[in-house]
Amino acid sequence: MPATAVAHPHVFVDTKLKVVVSATGKFEGIEVHWTYDDFYSLLLFADLGLDLDGDGELTQGELRRLDGFDMQWVAGFEGDSYAYRNGKRIKLGKPQGRGVSVTQGRITTVHFRPARGPAEGVVIQAYDPTFYTAYDLTGPVEVDGPCRATIEPADLDAAYTMVEELLYATPAAEAEDSYPEVGEAFADTVSLSCAG
């Protein structure tokens, strides 16, 4: 059985990031926008009994019921947003919900992860280590403050080659259950620069 027959990822999320930096150059946090794919959004509507008329739009009451559905994080889940400074992980605070919307049948949620320390040299990535969920960084990264963000796209050819090599060494019957943690290889890298 070819390694590529193992179906990963299962959920696709368009991701937008807004980095908040104080006037004095302190890293205050990241606002994260997740727009779920059509199929996953439809599954959520069905699971929660929403959009019963099937028009892809929700009433205000339905939006209130949906708000916060992805903020119930289990122990050990780090939010699939990671920040580093000089190669060391920066602790991001618990998510603070900032709303939910539905456009053309797709759910978008917004949350904020507070942080501390200097913004210069901060590196940010959005990924699921298990690659069950694929986060696609869309659009430029907005920076609220005196810094700028540059994006280095992931080397997708190298990432897929790595996956194939890892799965080739795994018996086909075990491939799904022991899928390697390769999500970071598929992540774009956002770097902050605050000089000048």
Rank of each mutant, 00 (worst) to 15 (best):
S191N: 11
G68T: 13
S81Y: 14
A185F: 02
E184K: 15
G76W: 01
F39D: 11
Q96C: 04
K88D: 06
V143I: 06
S193W: 07
T170P: 00
Q125V: 00
S22Q: 00
F131K: 09
V100T: 06
A172G: 01
F12M: 03
D55M: 06
A158E: 00
T138V: 13
Y36F: 11
T133H: 10
A75L: 08
G183V: 00
T189R: 08
G99L: 08
A83S: 12
F112R: 01
V102H: 05
G105N: 07
G29L: 09
F112V: 09
T24R: 15
E28W: 14
P118T: 11
V21G: 03
E62V: 01
F186H: 10
C147E: 11
L166A: 15
S41L: 06
L192C: 03
V74L: 14
R148P: 02
D38F: 10
K91A: 15
P140I: 07
E57C: 05
G121Q: 06
G196H: 14
T189M: 01
I151A: 03
L58I: 00
M1Y: 11
V21M: 07
M71W: 07
Q125W: 01
E57R: 07
A195L: 10
M71S: 12
D128Y: 01
P118N: 04
F39Q: 03
P146N: 12
W34T: 02
G121V: 06
D55I: 09
G145S: 13
I30W: 09
V102T: 03
K16R: 11
T59P: 06
R116D: 08
V182P: 12
C194S: 05
N86P: 03
G121S: 06
P153R: 14
D155F: 07
C194H: 14
D144M: 12
F39L: 13
I124S: 04
S101H: 04
F39W: 11
G79F: 00
I107W: 01
R64I: 15
F39C: 08
G99Q: 10
G93N: 04
D38R: 08
P95F: 11
Y132A: 11
D136M: 12
E28M: 13
L44A: 01
L43R: 08
Y179I: 13
G117V: 00
G54E: 07
R148G: 15
S41V: 05
G87V: 08
D177Q: 08
P2A: 15
K94C: 08
N86C: 01
V6C: 07
Y40F: 12
S22K: 11
V163L: 15
E174T: 13
H8Y: 09
L63T: 10
V143Q: 05
D155Q: 04
E142Y: 14
V11Y: 09
A154D: 10
L166H: 04
L63W: 00
Y179K: 10
I107L: 02
V182M: 12
V21S: 05
